[in-house]
Design a protein around this nucleic acid. Structure first.
Lengths: 104, 104
DNA sequence: GGTTATGTTCTATGGTTCTAGAACACAGCA
DNA sequence: TGCTGTGTTCTAGAACCATAGAACATAACC
């Protein structure tokens, strides 16, 4: 029996494509999640979910993670999600800030 | 017989939603079109098309237009497409610039 | 082990999108 | 009246996506 580690693989920031980031943020639910993460803190999936079913939330978080926008870190029985803000700003200077500024 | 004017309706800039703009620019083809329009000039659809079939091009231009990103003006038998740069910058300050800067 | 809490993965369904051929509409010109 | 160039609309197919219930996996605690 192999102890399978939960897989929260995220792309190397250099491999992130602009159109993938824009697509990930083009969904209102994911944009709202990203706004909530913009405080710089780590949030658990449950905190971010609100009324959204777990499976739907998991789906959206996966897309954000695979687009290079977020990091997910397992901690105990929950997971901690946060923005890859500095990395993203290095890859696409000013992009996330411009989007977040206009997302309010 | 009614002379039907070609319909290049575009939304009022105030009605444009951020997620719609991000979605429109999340397609590599449409992002390339937008980059080509970033010179500030009017381009005909044919000039922008390259290898892309006419119907596909028309589809993408319609999405960009309906997202509030471009204006299409009929001129003779062709149409002139251009960016709504100033309006868009008023609605979402810094957004288009940040995207275009990172689209290269 | 049993139970509970937190998420993921599986699966299905309905809707949307991309692509592109074919037909059509319009402008200009011979 | 045709003919050509430019672009739209119609239509269809394949792929993709959002949603969410059900089952499963993991962690913590008794």
């Amino acid at each position: 029996m192999v102890m399978t580690e939960r897989d929260f693989t995220q792309p190397d920031i250099e491999d992130v494509a602009l159109h993938a980031v824009l697509f990930a943020l083009s969904d209102p639910t994911r944009l709202a999640i990203t706004r909530a993460l913009a405080d710089g803190e780590e949030h658990s999936a449950g905190d971010l979910a609100g009324d959204i079913p777990k499976s739907t939330m998991s789906h959206h978080l996966k897309i954000l993670r695979e687009a290079g926008i977020t990091t997910t870190r397992p901690e105990g029985m929950r997971c901690r999600v946060s923005l890859r803000r500095a990395e993203l700003n290095r890859r696409f200077p000013g992009l996330l800030a411009a989007i977040l500024k206009n997302a309010g």
